[in-house]
Amino acid sequence: MIRRAFFTSFLNRQITRTIFSSKIINNNVEETENLTHFGFETVKASEKADKVHKVFENVAESYDLMNDAMSAGIHRVWKDVFLERFYPTQGTKLLDVAGGTGDIAFRYINYIKKLVKANPDNNVQSSVTIYDINQHMLNVGMKRAERLGFQSNEALDVDWVCGDAEKLPFDDNQFTAYTIAFGIRNVTNIDNVLREAYRVLQPGGRFMCLEFSHIEDSNLLQWQAFHHKNIYDQYSFQVIPPMGQILASQWEPYQYLVESIRRFPKQQDFKKMIRAAGFRAVDYENLTFGVCAIHSGYKV
């Protein structure tokens, strides 16, 4: 009984903090050159990378469990749809940025394996480079790859590289596809990342991004259940951080997660940013009423 009371009071405190911190966004802090946002907080640009690094260092081990818990397993569907739209072909040279635990890369490898099985005569070499800023996430991914048997073979190269998405250590025109799933939200400067993506892609190469986005007007998730906040926001701010506390013993990373989703540009704005980086035939598709969006563009 006492324990439960303690836990409830703890939750209440955290929720008050959540509400308080969500007020900061309304003040609309001006972003200057060396300031950026970390969730709803405003931090120095130089500090953001460290902060993000710390977040993912802490959650690396429980990352997959939490994804399943928070999205009720739907994140798997999103990733499947993402690969379905991407529809890799043999000979694809994929750079999977922010792909630490290999969710996208493993699905890609499955596609290629099936293609190789279907046309054994086609000797084109495909490749995937999994790139992440966080060695902890890569370690988790490598362990999984070993366990599930997603390793290099004669038709496929698998590489694991650690580094910053804003400074890719690759030559120009090296890849035919660039994917970034649930990663671009966490970078310090989105424009730099897009520019680098454009640089390493071959002409005709495809940029694809899967990211949390802003829900569409007038749908079920916009229903204002109580407190004049829609159920999507209620769920994000009142359920996800406590869930993180219970399942992964981490509150802050999940607080950061839901806040950073709100700070990410809207679908249309992000589309414009992709176009501004030089990509053409840019388009996006909303998943689950816009909880996620797939953006796609081509270097021409």
Binding site: R85, F86, T89, G91, T92, T176, G204, S296, Y298
Partner: peptide
């Protein structure tokens, strides 16, 4: 089929991934 488009793209000097332009 999509395969024909992929081969055509490769013939025209583009990587196969460009077939996504024809959803």
């Amino acid at each position: 089929t999509r395969q024909a488009i992929v081969k055509g793209a490769e013939q025209a000097g583009y990587p196969g991934t460009v077939h996504g332009m024809f959803p």
